[in-house]
Design a protein around this nucleic acid. Structure first.
Lengths: 222, 222
DNA sequence: AAATATCTGTTGAAATTTCAACAAAAGGAG
DNA sequence: CTCCTTTTGTTGAAATTTCAACAGATATTT
């Protein structure tokens, strides 16, 4: 556990909680850590939500698959980030998403009811923990708004450009890497892979962007 | 304020808070109530988020308008429901959405920092309030997942049917009213109004649904 | 009650996406 | 290094959406 202390300290769930308190708290919360291989299903759509997940290393993807087999990627979660917190908090009986390992690594799982229902020792950090969880949920909602702003565009080109501009803003640079390959990007933008590929090709020809594998560069300053 | 007590008691923000405590708390929080006319902009996209809104009567819509003028409707908020809580909690400096009055009515506004930062009297309900706010945020996230499940469909027909099935499930009946007119429904589903209209026409002809103004009935039991 | 504004359904042409299929390129395993 | 798998770009045809425009129906206002 100590190995990942620097990761946990960056986790929004543990903001403003001291190192020694954090370690004790994790014991109190019954946190457990597991290693998962690539493509492993950490949480299966339809199963009850009890655990909050924290990525310690590697990464996971949040995905939704409808009955026609169409995959939507809701997001990519990397080290020190939290996932499934909303479902665990709301205590839903059937997860609307699956969580799949993208890059193998270790994941910490915490039974959410241990967070929500103050422990018997009534430790003071507990209030801070709940406060942090709330902030995190608020930020997740904002993330969804950004995603909707992108996917609500009507054409592949507009969706792609909206996404790239947002990534550039996040990276604070016109050049940046995205966490998706082409198929995954298509599933995130809710478009067809082949159409996306050809659109990327056109934008490159037009001199609007550079694109080499996962690295994109916006050439126009707008 | 007393006039809307029954509405406030149903508000998820005030679950498990006694009537007398609630009234005192509202004073403590500096809650203020205002009447708004139809089409009035309660919150303007781009302005800082400070207040949580609670609809006491009438309804509001949460909308996003991109620079091309395309409108997306994120949701409809009716009596005893909360809005803008995520942005207020996250203390964002620029709202990504506007809130527009649909049916005129009264709205209660509460400065979110009064909720987040425990008051000097440190009243016990405050912890309950924060807990409730967290639950509410979790449910909002789930709502967004449902919306994504609908809008991620590729055709107008699929989006419409996914939406109608969800509404039927919520209403617990195959017949129900939706809160949108045709243009608004199109802006919620992220499709073209004319295409939506013709799709509704086809579904009626095929005997899959009945549709009369805002009342829809699913004729197939699936 | 008439006049005005808003909402709805329809149309056909243009633009775009989807779909299926294939080949080149890149990556990984032995 | 070679074989095998995965990823990516390309294509053209079919399906769907978008767009603009209009007319009938429904509300709202005066």
């Amino acid at each position: 556990m100590k190995k990942y202390l620097h990761v946990l300290k960056k986790c929004p769930l543990f903001s403003d909680i001291e190192e020694e308190d954090l370690l004790r708290m994790l014991v109190c919360l019954g946190a457990k850590t597991e290693y998962f291989d690539k493509k492993y299903t950490v949480f299966q759509e339809g199963s009850p939500a009890k655990y909050i997940g924290i990525v310690l290393s590697g990464s996971v993807q949040i995905i939704q698959v409808d009955f026609d087999g169409n995959r939507s990627i809701l997001g990519e979660v990397t080290a020190s980030e939290v996932f499934a917190e909303a479902f665990a908090c709301a205590e839903v009986s059937a997860l609307p998403v699956s969580v799949i390992v993208n890059e193998p690594g270790e994941i910490m799982l915490i039974n959410c009811s241990h967070i929500l229902h103050t422990c018997s020792n009534n430790c003071g950090f507990h209030q801070q923990l709940i406060f942090n969880l709330m902030k995190d949920l608020a930020l997740k909602t904002i993330f969804f708004h950004q995603r909707i702003e992108i996917t609500s565009k009507r054409t592949t080109r507009e969706k792609l450009m909206a996404y790239l501009h947002l990534q550039a803003k996040k990276a604070n640079s016109l050049s940046f890497e995205i966490p998706f390959d082409r198929q995954e990007l298509a599933d995130f933008l809710e478009v067809e892979r082949s159409g996306l590929s050809s659109e990327i090709g056109k934008l490159k020809k037009e001199g609007v962007i550079q694109a080499e594998k996962k690295r994109f560069t916006l050439l126009c300053g707008d």
